[in-house]
Structures are given as C-alpha cells and as structure tokens.
Nucleic acid binder design. Structure first.
Length: 225
DNA sequence: CTCGTCAACAGGACGA
DNA sequence: TCGTCCTGTTGACGAG
C-alpha cells in the first residue's frame, strides 16, 4: 500500500483561541491505524436497523440510513461476500478501516474537512465504503480535531493562569515592600507621594502610571507558544 | 476486568 | 422539507 505519508503524521497543533474555524490544524495522530492486521475484513456491516418503528424520527435521516443499509449490502456483496463471518448477525459490529482506507481519508481531510455530496460519493467509491460511512468518518474526525484543539486551548489557559498568578504574587510583594520602605524613609503624606516601583525613586511632581497590562490574548508571542 | 479508541448512531440546530 | 453539521452516546474491540 502506498500510503507512506500518513504513517508519520505528527500533531502540530496551531493554537488559536478562536477555534471556531474548521480548518484542519493538521491531521493528527489520532487516526491511529492500529493493528488492523487483525481486521482484514472489509466493511461489511450488518446495521442494526431493527425496523422497530418506535422511533421519534426525522424521517429523512431514517430514510437515509435505510438507504445506506441497503446500499451496504450491495457494496459488500460486490467487494466480497462475507457477511457475518463470525456469527454476529444483527448486532453492531466493529468495523476497522484498513490503513489504506484511513490513510486516504486523512489525505482527503487535509484537503477539506467537509465534503460535498460528489466528493463523498467519489471517496466512498474509491474506498469501497458506503457514502454514509465516509460521512460518519468525517464527522468523527472533525469532532476529534475539535476535541484536541480544546485540550490545547485548555493547556494554554492553564499556563496563562499560572503566569498571572505569579505576576500577581510578585506585584503584591512589591506593594508590601513599597509600603514598608515608605514608612522608613518617606515621611510625606501618602496622597502626594508617587513612587516608581521599577527604579524606586520618588518623584513628587509627575505621578507614576502603571503601564497597561499586556493582553496575552493578542500577544503573538504568547499565543503562538 | 478495566480503559481507551473509534465506527456508528440519535437527535437537535440550521441554512437553503 | 431536506441535507448536513455538531454533540453526546453506544457498543465492539484491543491492550494492559
């Protein structure tokens, strides 16, 4: 199989706190095509659409899934005819995509994270999967990407929080030191006293102004850590 | 046996 | 109304 490029896909997540965009950060290692050598069966899924009409449904979705189910039988019997080779007749069976299939899906995901119907059909045809399976794979893949991004954002915010706590502690210490030093060698009224904390000299004329706190959400150095 | 992963599903939201 | 997306959940399966 000629899918070498995805075997070593590294996760390089680019942080943007506005993770609203669906642009793929990068194909992650998430797709872990683990040990599919144990699962050489082709997608042959006997879907458990146990025609109990007890459902609440969205008729169109239901119909789509029924169609998909029918279609699967066609696809599977053409690709190879192994339905229920291990006896699980009606239950949901775990399908493992082959390395080639997941590799091709990853490649497609790199190009666009959503598919139009034509792309979906073509991809399904190439992969010998049902369009519904391709669609589900893309949905799950987007969800995984988003989850990963959320984790990265969370880590970033934790770091920011720690940084701010440190800064807060430092400033508090500085305030305490200034209070102490004032009482020692500055017997001036507090209202008229302005002290520059960095150079620690007194300037009664020009009041000291605290520089604006850097907004780390807009700070590229911090954002792209 | 537990836990993590992932394909598949359910159902609500939303735009055309 | 339909198609698609998102989110949460389920169930199969492998690894430890």
């Amino acid at each position: 199989m000629g899918f070498h490029s995805f075997a070593n896909t590294q996760l390089v997540l680019e942080l943007g706190l506005n993770s609203s965009s669906n642009i793929p950060q990068n194909p992650s290692k998430l797709s872990s095509p683990t040990s599919d050598h144990h699962h050489h069966r082709h997608p042959s899924l006997t879907l458990a659409l146990s025609g109990d009409s007890s459902s609440f449904s969205n008729a169109s979705v239901k119909r789509e899934r029924e169609i998909a189910s029918e279609e699967s039988e066609r696809v599977n019997t053409t690709s190879d005819d192994q339905e229920d080779e291990d006896g699980s007749v009606n239950g949901r069976k775990k399908l493992r995509l082959t390395k080639a299939q997941s590799g091709l899906l990853e490649e497609a995901f790199k190009l666009h994270t959503t598919l139009n119907p034509k792309q979906k059909q073509e991809l399904a045809r190439d992969l010998k999967l049902r369009p519904r399976q391709v669609e589900v794979w893309f949905q799950n893949r987007r969800a995984r990407t988003k989850l990963k991004q959320t984790e990265v954002d969370c880590e970033y915010l934790k770091k920011c929080c720690e940084t701010l706590k440190d800064e807060n502690r430092r400033l508090r210490r500085e305030v305490e030191e200034l209070k102490a030093s004032k009482t020692v060698y500055m017997p001036m009224p507090a209202a008229t006293l302005t002290v520059c904390p960095s150079c620690e000299h007194v300037n009664p004329k020009t009041p000291f102004t605290i520089p604006p706190k850097p907004n780390f959400f807009n700070n590229p150095q911090l954002v792209n850590y």
